[in-house]
Amino acid sequence: MNSIIGIVITVICVFGGYILAGGKMSIIMHSLPFEMMMIGGAAIGAFVCGNDMHTIKSTMNDLLAVFKGPKWKRQDYSDLLCLMHELVRLSEDSPVDLESHIEDPENSVVFQKYPRILASRDFVELICDTMRSMLMNFDNVYQVEELLDKQLEVMTEERLHGSHALQNMADALPALGIVAAVLGVIKTMASIDKPPEVLGEMIGGALVGTFLGVFLAYSLVGPLANRVKQIRDQEAYFYSLMREVLVSSLHKNDTILCIEVARRSAPHGCRPSFSEVEDAIKALKQAA
């Protein structure tokens, strides 16, 4: 919602100020379709040329995320802490039972309680692989911590490809605007014998290209790239909660302390309170 409000404010203030200053929208509207075709087409073409299909699809999903917001909500953080509490308790009390859950999470009664988390296959696979290593006595805390850090770093970097691609597009747009403007000047020079009022309109149309390139770069694509990065960085905190629980567990801390360490590392806006997590865990015990 903030992104939509920001775009609306930008458009109203820029073009509203131009109109109030006595500018004529007719020149811009006449040139806009052609300039947009040149600048937007070149930007999209360069984007497709410079990225693989996976990055292109990820960028499309990133643009949707800008308007939907981060994937993981406050309730998801609470659910993850409850899930990790159940898994850590199983690893301590009944490693054999835990193995059946991590080998087939889709049919696990533990994972099925949290369908949104279960739908994230990469994340569930990371949880299961790490706990499988723990069951195999791969219990060197620093090795597990380093392994998790590397895997989470790779996941985060992959999720930032869309942001990088959008930022590269934003960096190129001003130069593409100049290209469109130069073409407009070439067209104007070919009509140098026309009356001054005609030449003035043609030069104004050429300058629309420069305006459009800078406007799109710094008022639309650049802010979108920054917002995508913010969203993906915030989602990275969600994955780090799992790391905090497991590493703390390997230090032989009590399960509830492991959950509390992870809870405190959650972003402030999504962090469930201590009582909320405690009540959720009590509800799980009563249901069991």
Rank of each mutant, 00 (worst) to 15 (best):
I9W: 05
I12W: 03
I12M: 10
C13M: 14
Y18W: 10
Y18V: 06
G22Y: 03
G23P: 02
I28M: 08
M29V: 13
H30G: 08
P33D: 13
M37H: 07
M38W: 00
M38H: 00
I39K: 00
I39F: 04
G40V: 03
G41L: 06
G41Q: 09
M53N: 08
H54F: 08
T59N: 03
N61E: 13
P70R: 04
P70W: 02
W72R: 04
R74A: 11
Q75T: 10
Q75D: 15
C82E: 05
M84I: 02
R89C: 12
S91Y: 01
E92K: 15
P95Q: 06
P95K: 05
V96N: 10
D97K: 09
L98G: 02
S100N: 06
P105D: 08
E106W: 05
V110I: 15
Q112L: 12
K113S: 12
Y114T: 12
Y114G: 14
A119S: 14
F123R: 03
L126Y: 02
D129I: 10
L135V: 08
N140G: 03
Y142Q: 15
V144D: 06
V144W: 01
E146S: 14
E146G: 11
L147K: 12
L148Q: 09
L152K: 07
E157S: 14
L160D: 06
L166P: 00
Q167V: 04
Q167N: 15
A170L: 09
L173G: 00
P174W: 05
L176F: 11
A180F: 02
I186Q: 10
I186T: 12
I192L: 15
P195T: 04
P196S: 06
M202I: 05
G204F: 03
G204N: 06
G209Q: 02
F211S: 05
F215M: 09
L220G: 00
L224E: 00
L224S: 03
L224K: 00
K229G: 10
K229N: 13
R232W: 04
R232H: 14
D233L: 14
Q234S: 13
Y237E: 08
Y239D: 02
Y239E: 07
M242V: 06
R243C: 01
E244H: 07
V245Q: 09
L250R: 05
K252V: 07
K252G: 15
L257F: 09
C258M: 04
C258Y: 01
C258F: 01
I259E: 03
E260D: 15
G269R: 12
G269V: 14
C270E: 12
R271M: 13
R271S: 07
P272K: 07
E278W: 05
A280K: 15
K282Q: 09
K282E: 08
A283F: 04
L284V: 13
L284K: 07
